[in-house]
């Protein structure tokens, strides 16, 4: 199925939800989904036979200064088509529903997004830091992140040797 048909199908199914299809001038196009509709949309695209997005390629996010854009890349091994979904989360502890129960691979990837960008995935089974140590403060991939001067008593900067 091509991109246009996929979007038409999703949009007719979720006519009441405010879905916004963005055709980017360069790079990938994407569908912005409100976070309350995310689970229903993902469930729909996973279970509908014509779409059957069985593989979550990538779940990541970036700090767009006014909000955090959590991005989902889906792929279907059966139909060989792809889809990009985006959810805008509030900066600092914004909540997005988890999709761990739908895609096993989402578990670790959601933890990574939480760890590095501070997005909270509601009802995630174990939303703990994954790459950084548990006592780490802050979320380093936020644009306004300031590195602490010390970590466990160790200086994080050092004077130039020259």
């Amino acid at each position: 199925m091509n991109e246009k048909d996929i979007i038409t199908l999703i949009k007719t199914q979720f006519a009441s939800a405010k879905l916004e299809w963005v055709e980017a001038p360069s790079g990938d196009n994407y569908l912005v989904v409100p976070s309350e509709a995310l689970r229903d949309v993902v469930k729909y695209i996973k279970e509908t036979e014509a779409l059957y997005f069985d593989y979550l390629v990538n779940l990541s996010a970036f700090d767009a200064t006014e909000h955090i854009e959590v991005t989902y890349h889906f792929y279907s091994y059966t139909h060989r088509h792809k889809l990009v979904l985006k959810v805008k989360a509030v900066r600092l502890n914004g909540e997005v529903p988890t999709i761990t129960d739908l895609y096993g691979t989402a578990n670790f990837q959601e933890r990574e997004v939480f760890d590095l960008l501070g997005v909270r995935f509601a009802s995630h089974p174990n939303l703990a830091r994954i790459l950084l140590p548990p006592d780490f403060k802050g979320h380093p991939l936020l644009k306004d992140y300031q590195e602490e001067a010390q970590y466990n008593g160790i200086e994080t900067t050092r004077a130039s040797l020259l």
Partner: peptide
């Protein structure tokens, strides 16, 4: 590069590697 985003897959030795 112009404003935009892209996900590119490559078949690495350990399988599909995706750069976003």
């Amino acid at each position: 590069p112009p404003k935009g985003e892209v996900l590119v897959k490559v078949e690495s030795s350990r399988g599909e590697m995706a750069y976003w």
